[in-house]
Design a protein around this nucleic acid. Sequence first.
DNA 1: CTGTTAGCGCATTCAG
DNA 2: CTGAATGCGCTAACAG
Lengths: 360, 360
Amino acid sequence: MTVTLADVAARARVSPATVSRVLNGNYPVAASTRERVLRAVDELDYVLNGPASSLAAATSDLVGILVNDISDPFFGIMAGAVQSEIGGPEGMGRAGGEKLAVVCNTGGLAERELTYLTLLQRQRAAAVVLTGGALEDPEHTAAMSAKLAKLTRAGTRVVLCGRPPMPGPDGAADDHPAPAVLAFDNRGGARRLTEHLLALGHRRVGYVAGPPGRTTTRDRLEGHREALAAVGLATSAQERLTVHGTYSRGSGFDAARELLRRDPELTAIVAANDTVALGVCAALRDQGRRVPEDISVAGFDDLPFSVDAAPALTTVRLPLFEAAARAGRLAMGKEAPPPGGIATVEAELMVRGSTARPNG
Amino acid sequence: MTVTLADVAARARVSPATVSRVLNGNYPVAASTRERVLRAVDELDYVLNGPASSLAAATSDLVGILVNDISDPFFGIMAGAVQSEIGGPEGMGRAGGEKLAVVCNTGGLAERELTYLTLLQRQRAAAVVLTGGALEDPEHTAAMSAKLAKLTRAGTRVVLCGRPPMPGPDGAADDHPAPAVLAFDNRGGARRLTEHLLALGHRRVGYVAGPPGRTTTRDRLEGHREALAAVGLATSAQERLTVHGTYSRGSGFDAARELLRRDPELTAIVAANDTVALGVCAALRDQGRRVPEDISVAGFDDLPFSVDAAPALTTVRLPLFEAAARAGRLAMGKEAPPPGGIATVEAELMVRGSTARPNG
DNA sequence: CTGTTAGCGCATTCAG
DNA sequence: CTGAATGCGCTAACAG
């Protein structure tokens, strides 16, 4: 019923092996026979059987991309960038190194993260890219290390993008390479952002943090606190001005109201990311406070819509596309890993209209 | 080196067949032996070989999702929704019907669309969901029909989400089921949006259309023109007030300037989608025009950020998540196809702050 | 450069 | 309910 490699071979009057060779292009084949094979492929409308070749070759054309939430542009941009390198527009002929991206929505849940890695291991994925912050639970971290070690040992390349190196005994080992890491400078970016606010004269600054137990949340919060401490604002006093939430607009909306309740004299609010910052702005507008005249607001990430907010959002830009594209290249083995296996991706302060001097 | 089904069988003192049966759970197995097998699986840390089982079973756990651009929330939301149904949080135990989502970024390019379909066919994908508008080129449409027919004939379920039914001879046939279709009411939504503007008193309305040759572009533009024609505004006169662009912010920015150049007296601009509308707003602000006092602006899709624009964007809401979730269920065979194989997804007008009466 | 020979690891018949 | 045998379609040595 379904046409196989053998059928093509028969029609082209060559052996199955030869057909395989022209299809994979990894082996010298005479131009004339290649021609003949290709013609037979076309005439028979032959399509390679992926599972069969994966079984025989012990590796597949799949690249896993783990994201918290693909509907969030933060992850969408990274997923798209990885895609662009692994299944690029150029190499998309009949054959070639095109890989397919398997996008896995973990929702930030530990067990789903592990389950997806197992599923990818089951598929004999060629590579796995883990994006975004990591969960901080030590038990889970250990489980992840172990899982990733198994994957690398089985030949799957592992790349972390936007996540710190795995701590623990399994950062590397002698029987398998350590994952390549592209870490975001969340801490430095957050510090510079808050320094900007402090330089403007703000001293009562609220902070809407991300969900607890995540490296991104911690790093950004620490950067913020670092800046405050540098001008003598006690961390203890800041605890009260920090509210944790999720990375959603609604969360920012609620958090802003809560912060204002705790300190109606707040002159600035820093949000864990741009989406949250928009929620903060909405809540502020709701309460009749103007941004930035009455209160300054800042975000993080510099997603595309942030420049279009009114006022345009002061934020910290992360080169998500560039970083993830590089992650894609690392995953494909098209680029050498950074020295030491880890590179830091810089964050850049973007000062725009949503922050201004406080009205003493 | 790597542990196989046979190893598990040996350890559990059963035959490989039995192990296969408990793992797939599609066959009666004594509770006690199942127990034993499961234990052996755990002890050996066994992971099923996906390619091998796909080869033997002639089908895989992969579900393809074709999108134009995964970094666009419009597609991100749909991809996430499909995901939630095919690899849901609940069923994610060791075994079960979890499928993996293969997200394919076509960039709206005809040949990539076809290439990805071939790649998915090669993988023996269990299902394919095509999201967003279709290209209108007849040749390409025919090629797609043919490809989809092959896929369905090979047992792959095909679902169209946000795209009209395939025209041509191959909408269905007797040897394979027709694709299930969830079509968006782009035309009706666009018509109601423009009717809203007309009711407010606008008569000089610019339109920033999407890229030519796409069903979404055409449908939305037709709805717009329909509303104009209903109040006696000649379509011919409107040609000059229509500018085509891409679905990007920059495109909206440029288009707004161009429209204003063509008719400085414009009192409203309708954009092909929300992203474009934000670009329009930015251009207007740039030129010192206030929204909505000087000029009204409207978008389409009602993406999450639209309500946070200032002023909040008047737009047309498409229930992207719900529709795509349904598409996911259809892809999994968890839900019966709509009568006739096609259902229309309604679009709802959302009137917000960016539209108002023109200042006669 | 090309053909021959073996499996890759699992899902299924079919018996029992 | 369980075991034994067969083959899914392809790749990778190994010869030639």
